[in-house]
Design a protein around this nucleic acid. Structure first.
Lengths: 236, 236
DNA sequence: CGCGGCTTCGAACGCTGTTCGCTCTCGGTT
DNA sequence: AACCGAGAGCGAACAGCGTTCGAAGCCGCG
């Protein structure tokens, strides 16, 4: 209910949004989306919230983006552009370099909260993601891994990174929400330790071992295991 | 607007819901939830829809279940109970038996659409899930895999199963929605084949290889790779 | 100068999870 | 036998969601 609805527009208020914001392009919408995502997570990423970030209403976004799904995919592709690859592939260090890429990808995705659910949801073919894939597949082939194995491995590594980044982001979200994660894991350990001996002897006894290690350590381990498995496919 | 609001209750209508439905317990709510999930997927699983399934309104559910999140976790745990384990662990066949468990888990989860997003979201400690974990960790230890490695491996295998089942469910959902998945993959292959030579030489050339193989084949491969990697940790 | 097409956006639609408060039932106590 | 409190059931409502519609405004081209 604007009381000024009958009044002439105040001249120096005219281009108010244009002062602080560029004139609304798909890129600007994506950027605003990423801002909201970083601040409030995927759950808080609503079209209304993104529109607010741009000083407008939700309906305005639909001129630049077909809907929330497309916005999410554009955001994911934009974020994938942040992944930095090693300067040049070094085939003799293929395992180490693939690990570097995995670490970097995991770092970038985790930095943007739970964006990776989008990635888990389907194949992404944007240039930024493809660039990473091209680099990794090159390393695999140069290591002597058969083509079909390399293709499947690309899939597997992507899934590993995505699901791990998703899990990691949920913990950082919990921390941000004020949950004491250490206490949570203590609770899990105690729960396991108190399991009935006759049904879960191993889990009960391994309670301490089960909760040991942080996310990075576990991620590092999974990648190492996968790469060791891949190594066994090398043909000479 | 019931016109009978002033009339005495018609006796044989009295227990109308009780005739067809048990008197609403947490178990009944979970079961109804699974019915809706199977029929309409996680997206179609709403509190209203579950309530409708039970012949009541959404508010009634909250007496038995604290909210949608808890309902989902209860559903996941109930579904985990469908996973059948081999009769007894056979340490000399540990790899094959772990594969059997993975296949079975993947089958069960995929049969219930995209329920595994819940699993990706955190640690589940229900007895049904723990039973599977106990079995697998027993096999790993009996194979000579160090305790800490076994603990991490449990995590890794779970993640593999969950993310794969999630992906698989999305494709079956697409099929159910009438999408021609073969045509979709043909499109992906053509897209890859038409990539610019100078930027993506490998992906371009490997287009056919990249889209080769169905979900089961890829899943089988990933599990095999992971297990081969695990094998290298065995200490004698 | 006029006009057609694109952008902008207030309002609305149908949906969601959840809460409130009233009614009703039923088991246990006085 | 009477009562009463606890819990279950549930209609109504709230705040918020993604998305659509239609009117208005703007800009560049003819």
């Amino acid at each position: 209910m604007r009381v000024t609805s009958e009044m002439p527009p105040i001249p120096w208020h005219k281009a108010r949004r244009a002062d602080t914001r560029q004139p609304l392009t798909p890129e600007a919408v994506v950027e605003a989306g990423i801002h909201v995502l970083d601040r409030e997570g995927l759950e808080g990423l609503t079209m209304r919230r993104v529109a607010q970030e741009l000083g407008t209403g939700p309906a305005s976004l639909y001129a630049h983006v077909s809907g929330k799904d497309e916005l999410l995919e554009l955001m994911l592709e934009r974020i994938s552009g942040e992944i930095r690859l090693p300067g040049r592939p070094e085939p003799e260090r293929w395992k180490e370099q693939i690990k570097e890429v995995c670490r970097e990808a995991q770092r970038v995705y985790t930095a943007h909260r739970d964006i990776t659910v989008v990635s888990l949801g389907g194949i992404q073919l944007g240039p930024n993601k493809l660039k990473v894939a091209e680099f990794v597949v090159g390393l695999l082939l140069s290591a002597g891994i058969p083509r079909q194995v390399a293709a499947y491995a690309l899939d597997g590594l992507g899934q590993l990174i995505d699901s791990d980044a998703y899990e990691a982001s949920l913990y950082t979200a919990k921390i941000a929400a004020g949950v004491d994660v250490d206490a949570y894991f203590d609770g899990v350990r105690d729960y396991l330790a108190r399991l009935p001996e006759e049904r879960f002897p191993l889990l009960k006894e391994m309670a301490e071992t089960m909760v040991h290690g942080d996310g990075d350590e576990r991620f590092e381990f999974k990648v190492e295991v996968f790469l060791r498995g891949l190594e066994s496919y090398i043909e000479r």
